[in-house]
Amino acid sequence: MTASLARETTRGFVPGIPLSDREETAGRLLASSARKSYDPMIEVDWEAPIPDDKFGLTPEWSTLYGTALWDELSDEQRIALTKHEAASVSGVGLWFEILLMQMLLRDVYDRNKHSRHVQFALTEVADECRHSVMFARAGERLGMPGYGPPRYIHLLGKLWGRFFRGANAYAAVMAAEEILDMMQRDFMRDERVQPLTRTVSKIHVLEEARHIRFAREEVARRLTGASRARLAFERFNTALVVFFVVKSMIHPAVYANAGLDGDRAAAEAKRNSHYHDRVRKSGTKLMTFLDNVGLVGGPSKIFYKKVHLL
Rank of each mutant, 00 (worst) to 15 (best):
A3C: 09
A172L: 01
R221G: 08
Y304F: 15
R185G: 09
Q184Y: 12
R198E: 05
L156D: 02
V193Q: 01
G66D: 05
A269M: 08
R264K: 15
D75Q: 14
V92R: 04
S4C: 07
S282P: 01
H211R: 06
A220W: 01
K305H: 08
L57I: 15
M103E: 03
R189S: 07
A26F: 01
Y255C: 13
F236N: 11
A121F: 07
M134G: 08
E24K: 04
M103K: 05
G259A: 12
A239T: 03
P149F: 11
K113I: 02
G143T: 09
V254P: 03
P18I: 08
D45R: 10
L231P: 01
P150W: 05
G93F: 05
F96I: 10
R192S: 14
E208V: 08
A220D: 05
T25E: 05
V296N: 01
E24W: 01
D263K: 15
R106A: 08
H131W: 02
R210C: 05
L231A: 07
S33T: 13
E43S: 12
L310W: 06
A253Y: 08
A266L: 15
A169R: 06
R162P: 00
E177D: 12
S4E: 13
F13I: 10
P59C: 10
D110H: 13
S4R: 13
D21A: 07
L180T: 04
G166P: 07
G16Q: 04
H204L: 11
Y38Q: 04
E97S: 12
L94R: 13
S248N: 04
L104Q: 13
L30D: 08
S273V: 15
M287D: 00
L310I: 09
K305M: 10
M183G: 06
V205G: 04
M287T: 12
M101I: 12
Q102R: 15
D110P: 07
A226W: 05
V254C: 07
T82S: 13
Y147R: 05
G225F: 13
K54I: 07
S248M: 06
L231S: 10
T123S: 14
F163A: 04
E97N: 11
N112M: 02
D291I: 01
I98W: 00
W70G: 02
P49H: 07
K36C: 14
P195I: 00
A48M: 05
H131N: 03
E23N: 06
L142P: 02
W70A: 05
L104I: 15
H276Y: 09
S273M: 10
F96T: 13
E24P: 00
V254Y: 04
T123H: 02
P18N: 12
P51E: 07
N237R: 11
E140W: 14
V205C: 12
R7A: 15
R235F: 02
E124G: 11
F135I: 10
G298N: 07
Y170D: 03
H276L: 11
L240M: 15
L295K: 03
T199G: 00
D181S: 11
